[in-house]
Design a protein around this nucleic acid. Structure first.
Lengths: 226, 226
DNA sequence: ATCCCTTGACTTGTATACAAGATTGTATTA
DNA sequence: TAATACAATCTTGTATACAAGTCAAGGGAT
């Protein structure tokens, strides 16, 4: 488990949740790994209570398995859930960008433009981490423009299953194409061109296709056998 | 708050979560009502811990608002969230029944047939509560047949916002038509007729349209002013 | 009467104590 | 040697104690 800096503004619970989630996505908490509420609590410098609440929540999202009085484990990567995440993203993103074409205000578009400009900036300096953050934020802003913020929160949780796979196959995605896609999405929204928007989203999602067979060969211990 | 019987098999946490959620859906915990962790804990006969964990979870789902050191309230019905729920259900249910047409096994279909038979049975005796339960179960089984169980769990949580509205407008839905719809969905799945399936789902969802204007006049104190 | 301050009874946030079950290593016994 | 009983030590589940902040009521001073 890697250290995560604690913000001043956040409660112990929020900090624990964020730290554990980030570690799961980054595979610093490995799939299948045994975890202990006490260990994590002392590592993070908080008590068991906020850690426990976070673990319960991640258990609900099928990211941690709890065996009472025995122990808790980071869930193995289950291709069943990964496929559900991919399915959900595809169905929702297409429906939502269509709605964003209808509803996006000038303010929404201004924010999206600022985001894309930053993506282009960080693309030049090859700052993959920043691009990753801006990528997530870009898609969130589209949901907000479409007045679907609650749905986005839910999408984010489900997507963690896919995010882990993405972490393992780090280099599968070409940042250049991603950033270009975002520019096309933005102009489609500006022009209220729903068909163009849906078309580019579909193409965009296909770029994230990863070779699960290869990952399974490289990291067999991380995957659930069915 | 109404009493909810505790099953032997469930933990205090599961019981608290189920009891509070049921009370929110049934409006026995009223929108806007002040709630106290201590009060609920003693009413349910458990300690603050499991109650607190449940409240945190419902807060994440935007069903309870927490003001630290001041108090917690059942969220007012916010038409923004109700509309997100309706949107989500429509987008997902249509995509999922299409997938169910592809993937449903004979076992899946057998279970659906049994469910529809029971719906017809309880329709004769006008048992609205049973129909409500079978309705939920019917849709869940379609998600399971389409291998989208995790997505269904998520859908269920979002739908609580709509379920509250449904509770208030109890009599708006004609059970007869609902049960008939389910029969048509089932035969569309059996025949792998995706277009027919999507068409009837769309028609089906329209039946749940409620007159929010009227509800707002009848229960103004339950609704969030924007 | 009005303003201000204090006090006490609430709230949620967090830490800790205890309960109950699972597991493992060890010692004892057949 | 092998099997079994037992104790120590884990685990999570639950209850409780304490911390810190909010708010309203009431008393006293102006």
């Amino acid at each position: 488990m890697k250290a995560v800096e604690r913000y001043n503004s956040e409660t112990a619970r929020e900090y624990a949740m964020r730290a554990i989630t980030e570690n799961i996505i980054s595979i610093d908490l490995e799939p299948g790994q045994l975890i202990s509420e006490n260990e994590i609590a002392s590592f993070l410098g908080v008590s068991r209570t906020p850690v426990r609440e976070s673990i319960q929540e991640l258990n609900k999202a099928a990211l941690i398995e709890i065996y009472p009085q025995r122990g808790s484990y980071v869930s193995l990567i289950d291709s069943k859930y990964v496929e559900e995440a991919v399915f959900l993203r595809k169905v929702l993103d297409i429906a939502v960008i269509e709605e964003a074409c209808n509803l996006a205000t000038e303010d929404d578009i201004a924010l999206l433009e600022e985001n894309v400009a930053l993506q282009e900036f960080y693309l030049k300096s090859n700052n993959t981490k920043k691009i990753f953050e801006l990528d997530n934020e870009f898609h969130r802003m589209i949901y907000v423009a479409a007045k679907k913020e609650m749905i986005h929160n839910m999408r984010k949780n489900v997507m963690i299953h896919f995010d882990r796979v993405r972490t393992l196959s780090m280099l599968a995605v070409k940042d250049t194409k991603i950033v270009a896609d975002h520019g096309i999405m933005l102009s489609a929204i500006k022009n209220k061109d729903k068909n163009k928007a849906k078309e580019i989203v579909e193409k965009h999602l296909d770029r994230y296709r990863v070779d699960q067979e290869e990952l399974l060969r490289t990291y067999p211990q991380y995957f659930a056998k069915e």
